[in-house]
Structure formats: structure tokens, C-alpha cells
């Protein structure tokens, strides 16, 4: 008998009587102050967030925030400043020194400041993690109140991307004496721009 069969058989023999699957909570309502609350939440998890209504100021703002960035990859029209090209087949060595990545998120969660990025927004899955600085653009109408709202909108059960990630703040660690250090192995900073 295969290990698969052995495990399944043991589970079948030992599983308890059937228990009902509880109903899930409904998504919380998006309040009028959703944008400032989202911005505050991103900052509380170590990121920076701005509510920037105008498109032209946006590019200047990014330029201003990362004056030393040399290897830049942007997938957003508002910031056409890519200096490197990346796709699935780009060898990993070429990703090692990327300074700035600018991507478009498709959903933001007010309760935890997370932004959803999936395969369709990622020329290479490693991009949000390898870069020193990450900038995410998000439309204000893409905010949801909480995680229940997030999954209700994403509908991954019907159309799942190969990969998707919720990004809440920059890379961080508290593994040395519980002291918070921003920029562990991944990005040292995160800027979320709500437009």
C-alpha cells in the first residue's frame, strides 16, 4: 500500500464524527475615513503611504523619494522610468541589485494595510521581494475594510492566479532581542500611493 493510501486510511479510521462548517463573517463596511485609516495602517506596519490625487505629481514624488535609485523597474504608466527589463526568464543574477520596483496593486485592506499583488501584475514573482525599495500604486476604490472583504473581492476560488501576495509594510524582523529592524532580507522600504 502506498504512503498516500496508508495516511488516508488512518485518517478515515480515526476522524471524529462529522462537524458542521460554520458560516463565515460578512465583510465589514468601508467607512468614510477608509483612506486615512489605510494610510495610517500602512505607516503603523513600517511603510509609508500617501493619498496623491494627481498623476503628474506622482512621478515627481517617486523621483524625489528615491534620488539614488539606478536600477529601476516600473510597470505603471504613471512612472515610465524603467532602466531594466525583467520577465519570467530573466536570470536571477540580474535581479540582485534592483533599487526600485514600482507596481500596481489590485486591492488594499484597511484593517491591516496590506496590498494584493498577483501574477498578472508581476513580470517576475521575485520582484516585490528582491528590490531595495518597493512602491505600490492603488486606486482608492480598490480598498476593502477587512480580510473577509478581501477574499470576497478576490474570488480566488473561481479564478486563482498562480501566485499572489498580500504585502503589509516592508521586510522586517524582530529576531534579535525582539528589537524591530526594518529591511531584513527583503525591501528596506515600502511606499503605497493611493490614487
Amino acid at each position: 500500500m502506498s504512503s498516500r493510501e496508508r495516511i488516508l486510511q488512518a485518517v478515515r479510521a480515526n476522524r471524529p464524527d462529522r462537524r458542521a462548517l460554520p458560516d463565515l463573517p460578512v465583510a465589514g463596511p468601508l467607512t468614510a475615513d477608509a483612506i486615512p485609516r489605510f494610510v495610517a495602517m500602512v505607516e503603523s506596519v513600517g511603510g509609508r503611504a500617501v493619498h496623491a490625487p494627481s498623476g503628474s505629481e506622482l512621478a515627481a514624488m517617486i523621483d524625489h523619494a528615491y534620488p539614488d535609485a539606478r536600477e529601476i523597474l516600473s510597470t505603471v504608466d504613471e512612472y515610465p522610468r524603467s532602466t531594466v527589463q525583467v520577465d519570467h526568464d530573466t536570470p536571477r543574477e540580474a535581479l540582485q541589485h534592483i533599487d526600485l520596483v514600482v507596481l500596481r496593486g489590485s486591492l488594499g485592506v484597511v484593517e491591516n494595510g496590506a496590498v494584493w499583488l498577483a501574477d498578472d501584475a508581476l513580470p517576475h514573482r521575485a520582484l516585490p521581494f528582491v528590490t531595495t525599495h518597493l512602491v505600490l500604486l492603488l486606486r482608492a476604490d480598490q480598498l476593502v475594510a477587512d480580510m473577509h472583504g478581501a477574499y470576497a473581492v478576490l474570488q480566488l476560488e473561481h479564478d486563482t492566479p498562480g501566485f499572489g501576495v498580500l504585502v503589509s509594510g516592508p521586510s522586517k524582523t524582530a529576531d534579535i532581542e525582539r528589537a524591530l529592524v526594518i529591511g531584513a532580507q527583503g525591501p528596506r522600504s515600502l511606499l503605497v500611493i493611493v490614487i
Partner: peptide, 28 residues
């Protein structure tokens, strides 16, 4: 998938007091 909404709200808050971990990666 929607069950994640419940567990991810609970996990990091219980673990470290964060609202969610920095990265919540969904591999399919």
C-alpha cells in the same frame, strides 16, 4: 479560500500583535 479571512485575522495578531504578517503569500 474565504476561510483564510478568519485565520489570517487571527494569526499575526495572536502571534506578535501585528495586524497581518508583512508577506502573506498564496502559492498555487
Amino acid at each position: 479560500v474565504a476561510d483564510l479571512g478568519v485565520f489570517l485575522r487571527l494569526l499575526a495578531r495572536s502571534a506578535t500583535g501585528q495586524p497581518i504578517t508583512a508577506y502573506t503569500s498564496h502559492f498555487v
